[in-house]
Amino acid sequence: MIHVSADQNLYKIEELIPPQTELNLYNPSDGIPDLNQADALLLRTVTHLTADTFPNPPKNLRFIGTGSSGTDHLDNEYLEEKGITLASANGCNARAVAEYVMTSILLWREKEQPDESFGSVGVIGVGKAGSAVVELLTNFGIDCVQYDPPRAEREPDFSSVSLQEVLNCDILTFHVPLNRKGNYSTFHWLDEEKLKGRSYKLIINAARGGVINELALMKYYVEGDIQDYILDVWEDEPDFNTEVAKHAFIATPHIAGYSEQAKVNATKLVCDQLAKFFNLASGPVHYEIPERAEDLAHIQYDLTKLITRLHPILGYDKALRDLSGRPDKKVLFRNLRNEWPYRFEYPSLKIRKELLEEFPELKKLGVKATD
């Protein structure tokens, strides 16, 4: 029997954990659990494991899986030196993040420049999430360029545009990991030096807090060089900068990748890797998410009203702004992430056929017609 300690907030963990395991759930708010009996630890981004926070890993602990695409909360080199195999849910939320970006751009255009084109979009970081963003932008016929020098270095078939080409775009959207060292450091990648002398319609960060220098971003927004910005991630998360949030077109509490499908994918990916690592005969656990028909009243809709019925982005935005000035905003920020129900991704939603015909943008997002 394999003993597994898992974050209680890993979605559907009890349904998706392989049956040949003994599962112990822990509350991450209480810190790192007692792992003296654990063979494996499954966690989320709220748990940081480094030489300082986790100085003496028990010898029996052989596997750590994170239910997230990124691993910047883990000191990978340190943990691997301790003989621990690491696994992540890389790509689990790619579609959800892409939908967040496309939803944001559509809402921004509807409000700020309904009669103008989107302009060109520079996608910075073209891994699984960035690639999903490119796919959706292409569905909408939006001109976009792809910037990812490390991927171009790894993959001869991938071509990255130059730094100047991507910085010349009208809109920038970020999908890179947070790296503080190495040849491709992304910490404060977008800083005052890159912003100076340029103008942008919109800047979106749905990657990691710290990829953009938030104070420089706000400065150039106030000075008029940046028309709008949208932030889902924050430098000192969960202690987000309320002044930066106040000026944002949309500000959300790190939920771009939060969907029913993404959360199931995340837990399933780490559980499948756990099963493979420990040679569990049961193999992957199957879990199916049904489609959902949205019962939309027969009222006069515009695109903004429809989108915000299907995607809770503006609800999160309002909730985050309501935290400004609250002494317990860090706790409430986490609560927004943990307690709101997950949305369904667009391809799993169905609405009336006449609405799809009236608003073809929804069809491009993947929404289907009810039977």
Score class of each variant (00 low, 15 high):
H286N: 14
L274A: 05
L332D: 07
P327M: 02
H311P: 00
D272R: 05
I307M: 07
L320S: 03
T267P: 00
R309P: 04
R321G: 02
L306T: 05
P327Y: 08
R321W: 10
Q273S: 07
E345N: 04
V331Q: 15
Y342C: 02
N279T: 11
K330R: 12
A275H: 03
I299G: 08
E339I: 05
T308L: 04
Y316P: 05
I313R: 03
E291G: 10
W340S: 09
K268W: 10
K263M: 10
K330P: 02
S324L: 08
L323K: 00
D322R: 11
D272M: 00
L303P: 01
G325P: 00
L323I: 06
V285F: 07
F277W: 13
P284W: 11
T304R: 12
G325N: 07
Y346R: 03
L274S: 03
Y342N: 08
P312N: 14
A319V: 10
F333A: 01
T308S: 08
E288S: 14
E345M: 05
R292D: 07
R334L: 07
R334N: 12
P312I: 09
S282H: 11
G283H: 12
A266S: 13
P312T: 11
T308M: 08
W340R: 15
V270T: 09
K268A: 10
L310Y: 06
I313C: 02
G325K: 01
D322Q: 15
D302W: 11
A293P: 08
I289Q: 01
Y316I: 03
L303H: 07
K329A: 04
Y301F: 11
N265K: 04
E291H: 13
H298N: 15
N265C: 02
D328A: 00
T308D: 08
V264W: 00
E339C: 01
I289R: 02
L310T: 05
F344T: 11
E294P: 00
D302G: 06
A293I: 09
L314D: 03
Q273M: 04
K318M: 10
K276W: 10
Q273I: 05
R321V: 01
E294L: 11
P290F: 08
L314P: 03
L303A: 03
L306G: 04
D317F: 05
A266P: 02
W340T: 12
